[in-house]
């Protein structure tokens, strides 16, 4: 496995991503919607009513759940990018000549994964930085301290987001092998987003609360899923399977 070869693939993917306006738009709009929208929402709530002590507790709970949104958009962005990248090759039938070059299956999958990982991770981290700054400014007067950054943020950004991105890339790869248009690949790979959504709903109905411990456990579960999925992905993305079994 040569990282150099994988990186050549990544660069090629980047030059295609750059040309896909819808993708760029997605990368800018989704994180910005959260990083500006959520603070605006909180600002609206705070300004609209007199704040009681119970509200302060409520607000900090809300902020933890908000953090989780960033993990969700990371997953959406990565799935979308990975699905487009693999189904794109499939539609253009460019995998066969590519596989005839002295590059290994692993290098191709690594290169493609990086091209989905890097931009979605960067977009989410940048969006989150903006979010934290704005949110601190808005909530400082009520809470009396800067809520962000905190341990939960670190767990979300450094563990949950990267593990979530990896899982969504794995799922995208698997589903891309079964369909032949990017839209359905993307929809299929949204399956990776369902567990995250369930967790979110559970917090909303107060079955679980997103404390640092809960977040850590979720990140751990996602990491285990990453590892379990890996051999399946490698099998699906083998040259023999690509050329003889992919639909």
């Amino acid at each position: 496995m040569s990282f150099r070869n994988a990186w050549i693939i990544t660069q090629k993917e980047f030059s295609i991503i750059r040309l896909r306006k819808s993708l760029i738009y997605f990368y800018v709009v989704l994180p910005l919607a959260l990083s500006i929208g959520l603070p605006l929402l909180v600002w609206h709530v705070i300004n609209g009513a007199s704040i009681k002590a119970t509200d302060i507790h409520y607000i900090s709970g809300l902020l933890n759940a908000f953090e989780f949104f960033f993990a969700i958009i990371a997953v959406i962005l990565a799935s979308y990018t990975a699905a487009y990248s693999i189904v794109g090759e499939k539609i253009q039938k460019s995998l066969e000549p590519l596989l005839a070059t002295p590059i290994s299956d692993g290098e191709i999958i690594l290169g493609k994964s990086l091209s989905a990982f890097i931009p979605s991770f960067i977009a989410v981290v940048l969006g989150n930085l903006i979010y934290m700054t704005l949110m601190d400014k808005i909530t400082y007067s009520i809470l009396g301290y800067s809520y962000y950054p905190n341990l939960s943020t670190a767990i979300v950004l450094l563990l949950l987001v990267p593990f979530g991105i990896i899982l969504s890339i794995e799922i995208s790869t698997m589903s891309s092998s079964r369909v032949s248009d990017p839209r359905s690949a993307y929809q299929l790979s949204m399956a990776g987003f369902i567990p995250f959504f369930i967790v979110y709903v559970l917090t909303e109905i107060s079955v679980i609360s997103l404390t640092s411990t809960t977040l850590l456990i979720i990140a751990g579960v996602v990491a285990v899923a990453d590892v379990l999925m890996y051999p399946l992905v490698i099998r699906t993305f083998s040259r023999e399977m690509i050329l003889t079994s992919w639909k």
């Binding site: 090629k12 030059s15 253009q92 066969e96």
Partner: peptide, 10 residues
């Protein structure tokens, strides 16, 4: 290959 398999956007 049977299909040119070029990257159409590039």
């Amino acid at each position: 290959a049977e299909n040119v398999g070029l990257y159409e956007e590039l």
